[in-house]
């Protein structure tokens, strides 16, 4: 039955749900910004101190006066995630190429579902296995005092982001027109030549998007990393050293701190930085996509 009221209500709700998608990320950003600002306005720390000094000793009270240097966490995140990328990207690309160029049938039937299942495995399970298997393993193999290290964090994160990068890369590679491949084969190129000279360069932009998405996931992962990296709030001494990251400090400290205290405000600031980094990655993906589109014009 047609009724104008019904149509209007329906449209209102549909639009409302659309608007909610916009409202949520904005609201999250605003709340974190407001809370995180306390570190600077209420407790009078400077952005320079926060970004470039290394002593993180904020007071868990309303008076403040501690030291708020988050450089260790920022650098820790960068190092662990960078290491994870270094490990994951070559494997991801190889797996994606295998799925699309080498054995498409076998790849889509077995490897692709397997990779997709990897995506769903909870991060705490990765962290738990990392802690109970990988950490002792590293300890024994390299004769360390403890296997909790940047390397362990990098490996766990690499395993976690491998599937996301692989699926995006495989889609990107598959999207390269078959005709371009045939043209190269027709000139007498081998499969490897076609893959790395024609297909990969053509898929480059989208593959990069996948890598950034993986990096974003790595940056935001908290618990799995916290379980294998240790708690030392200092710059790591090599890949076997321990450190802390932006997410691990939030995960391990937030609960014990008083609401409204200087120390808690510091953690909110770090959370806001994490939010900004997510935004930055999305922004980066759009810039790369736009550049890629322009190049082909």
């Amino acid at each position: 039955m047609y009724s104008k009221g019904k149509e209007k209500t329906w449209k209102f709700f549909v639009l409302l749900c659309g608007l909610l998608m916009i409202a949520l990320p904005i609201a999250i950003g605003i709340f974190l910004a407001v809370k995180g600002n306390a570190l600077f306005y209420q407790y009078h720390h400077t952005l320079g101190e926060f970004l470039f000094t290394t002593t993180w000793k904020l007071k868990d009270d309303l008076v403040g006066g501690g030291k708020g240097g988050a450089a260790v966490f920022i650098v820790g995140s960068l190092i662990v995630c960078g290491l994870a990328l270094l490990i994951a990207v070559p494997f991801s690309l190889a797996a994606a190429i295998f799925m699309t160029e080498i054995a498409p049938k076998w790849g889509t039937k077995i490897l692709r579902p397997a990779v997709e299942i990897f995506v769903g495995i909870p991060s705490v399970v990765y962290g738990w296995i990392g802690m109970t298997v990988l950490v002792p393993f590293l300890q024994n193999v390299f004769h360390l005092k403890t296997g909790r290290s940047v390397l362990a964090g990098g490996i766990v994160l690499a395993v976690m982001i491998f599937p996301s990068i692989t699926t995006v890369a495989a889609d990107a590679i598959r999207a390269v027109p078959v005709s371009a491949r045939m043209a190269a084969y027709g000139l007498g190129a081998t499969r490897w030549q076609v893959t790395h000279q024609i297909v990969m360069p053509a898929a480059q932009t989208s593959v990069l998007t996948g890598v950034i998405l993986g990096l974003a996931r790595a940056f935001g992962e908290a618990l799995a990393v916290a379980m294998v990296i240790g708690k030392t709030p200092a710059f790591p001494k090599g890949i076997f050293g321990q450190t802390a990251t932006m997410t691990t400090v939030i995960a391990s400290r937030m609960a014990e701190l008083m609401e409204g205290s200087e120390a808690k405000a510091g953690l909110w600031t770090i959370a806001f930085i994490l939010y900004l980094i997510s935004l930055f990655f999305i922004f980066l993906i759009h810039i790369i996509a736009a550049k890629g589109a322009k190049k082909n014009k």
Binding site: V176, P177, S179, A180, M182, A183, A184, Y185, G186, L187, G188, A189, Q197, I198, P201, A202, N296
Partner: peptide, 25 residues
């Protein structure tokens, strides 16, 4: 295929520059 080249039904240049297309072979 190096001795017997092929031109396809749909033009299929590589997503590269004009120069690199010709220089590929």
């Amino acid at each position: 295929r190096q001795r017997v080249g092929m031109v396809f039904q749909q033009p299929n240049p590589f997503p590269k520059t004009i120069y690199d297309n010709v220089a590929y072979g």
